[in-house]
Amino acid sequence: MAPPAVTDNTGEERAPLLPFSPLLRRRLLTALPTLFVIVTLTFILTRAAPGGPFGKEREMPEAVRENIEHRYGLDRPVYEQYLRFWGNLLIGSLGPSFQQPERSAFGVLIEGLGPSLIVGLSALLVALILGIGGGTLAVLRPASTPVVSIAALVALAVPVFVLGPMLVRFVAIGLGLLPAALWGSPSHVVLPALTLGIPVGGALARFWRAVLAESIELPECIAARARGLGEWQLVWRHAARKSLPLLLNYIGPMLAGLVTGSVVVEKIFSIPGMGRCFIDSALARDYPVVIGATLIYAFILLVVHTLVDLSHLRLDPRLRKEHTEWTEADRALRRKRRAAARAAKQSRGT
């Protein structure tokens, strides 16, 4: 589709730089400070943390300690370390990992990204199936509402680190159906995905039920029902469509839940993922990996948020229109203000 044309007060007509450019501009404006804040914050946190990246089993003679500090540049002033870190980052490097001195920090993280994404996306699928399925069922079959509500609440109230061992104990050890832990085949993904997905699914079911119940009361849905549309059709054709944009909003908290939970799930199931890497690195003062991991998480959040924004505009033509109108109105307002300010200045000046 063609980018919406914007007419401003001067009567000239010009096209925005990009389709939805105000939106992307806003995202970008958020992204850069976010990255800066994260790097600085984690850097300060790591340097202020007590202890250093040294051997774990015994103390070292002073000479050995100094050699190691020198090797990692930890004997330099902190501001210099900070600037060097930025320098490295701009050329896409984090330096060597302190905990795994024979690997680069970036390499360590990239290796862990794959398994984390696989588990995370499978868990997302689990959560969507449980959440959307449960929520819809509760709206359509009022008899099932209490069951769904209670199941969702239980899913929410059982910590991930309890659910995981329970599933392992009863499904993997008791029934012998699935591997208890480790990584390497699709069957290894099932239990971690369930562990991570069930609590998020519980939260989603509650959300979806509420949202759907609200849209089903909208006039157009009532009208459709009056026309004799079946309940499932009603939900499918009207209510779900109305609620979908709201679901997009919910992706943020779902993602946060998945990412946080992954730390625990990867530990319990011994998955070579980034969450486990993060905790281990924090405990071992592996600064480059810690900062890198935080950055990657922030980056993922950012990408998802942007995608959500774009989908909003795609999904909802009204929103798109509103958005353009809003941008226009906002511009007009600013111009008006500026003009008023100028006028005030001039009047004061004279």
Binding site: L23, F207, V211, D309, H312
Partner: peptide, 23 residues
Amino acid sequence: GTPEKIMAVGPAPDGQDQEDGGA
């Protein structure tokens, strides 16, 4: 706004922050 929508603490959904219009 409904708790569900508010507790959905995702990115500021476009149009929600601005629904009453920045202008």
